[in-house]
């Protein structure tokens, strides 16, 4: 495959032609924050957190293939502000009560909040009234926390390739639903994977909560993205408030 040269924040990088920007950046030791995206899974660009500027225009790094000579801005104050605002929007849109959430400490949304130094959402909290579904013998689906990243729909399938999950409705009524018949027979291993792939605490395995003590959870001590970055993670903690 042809290799192409491009730049991220003036750093010379090289990647396979057609590789998505997040993957190309990762291979070059540059972390572009993502939320809905998963490595080796077809991207859908729903959360926009990986927004970068490609040759001066905004694009989502998970759905933009790299091309020769691209100049990408990622670690700039402008892009940082956009990403932080997107995270704050997600926090305000659903019911993200971190203190009561089983996923707290392992949650990618929360970890991004930490990374971007979010102290409060600048948007009004919506407090929507949402259901909790326990139809599946292994899973609890808490729609209060669902961010519609489509990860479960894209990755949790049976042997024939049929998805256990699907979207219903449109616009602000869009939600994930689980096939009732398939839910009854979902194997434990598939359920475990569903919980693992959910970036927030929307898909939870029953009777497994709070197994890992505070201090040893995924993002207690390590900032999200620190595994990719070569240098020490720079956490933006400049200001306490959001104004």
């Amino acid at each position: 495959m042809e290799r192409v040269k491009f730049q991220i924040d003036n750093k010379d990088c090289e990647a396979l032609y057609g590789q998505m920007l997040v993957d190309a950046a990762r291979d070059n030791g540059v972390y572009i924050p993502t939320l809905c995206n998963m490595q080796d899974v077809k991207p859908c660009g729903s959360c926009r957190v990986c927004t970068v500027k490609v040759n001066g225009r905004y694009a989502t790094a998970c759905t933009t293939p790299v091309a020769c000579g691209m100049e990408i801005e990622s670690d700039t104050e402008e892009i940082h502000e956009i990403r932080k605002a997107l995270i704050e929007l997600i926090f305000a849109e659903g019911n993200h009560y971190c203190p009561t959430c089983e996923m707290s400490g392992n949650c990618e949304l929360q970890a991004l909040g930490y990374r971007f130094g979010m102290m409060v959402s600048r948007f009004p909290y919506q407090f929507p009234q949402r259901e909790i579904n326990t139809d599946c013998q292994h899973l609890i689906i808490d729609y209060n926390r669902c961010i519609r990243c489509k990860r479960c729909i894209r990755t949790i399938k049976d042997k024939k390739g049929k998805s256990y999950f699907a979207f219903i409705n449109r616009g602000d009524k869009l939600e994930v639903t689980m096939d009732k018949e398939m839910a009854k027979t979902m194997p434990l291993k598939v359920a475990e994977l569903a919980m693992e792939n959910c970036p927030v605490g929307a898909i939870l395995l029953k009777e497994t909560a709070y197994r890992v003590p505070i201090g040893e959870r995924r993002f207690d001590k390590k900032c999200i993205g620190s595994e990719i970055e070569e240098t020490d993670v720079k956490v933006f903690m400049g200001e306490l408030n959001n104004e």
Binding site: C98, P99, C101, S104, G105, Q110, G113, Y114, G117, M119, I214, D220, K221, C223, V233, V235, M237, L240
Partner: peptide, 22 residues
């Protein structure tokens, strides 16, 4: 750290472990 920074006018530098939502 926040109180001291506020009262002394010094810049606030917070370690990663200190800001948590839970």
């Amino acid at each position: 750290d926040a109180l001291v920074a506020l009262l002394t006018g010094k810049e606030l530098e917070l370690p990663y472990e200190v800001v948590k939502y839970d």
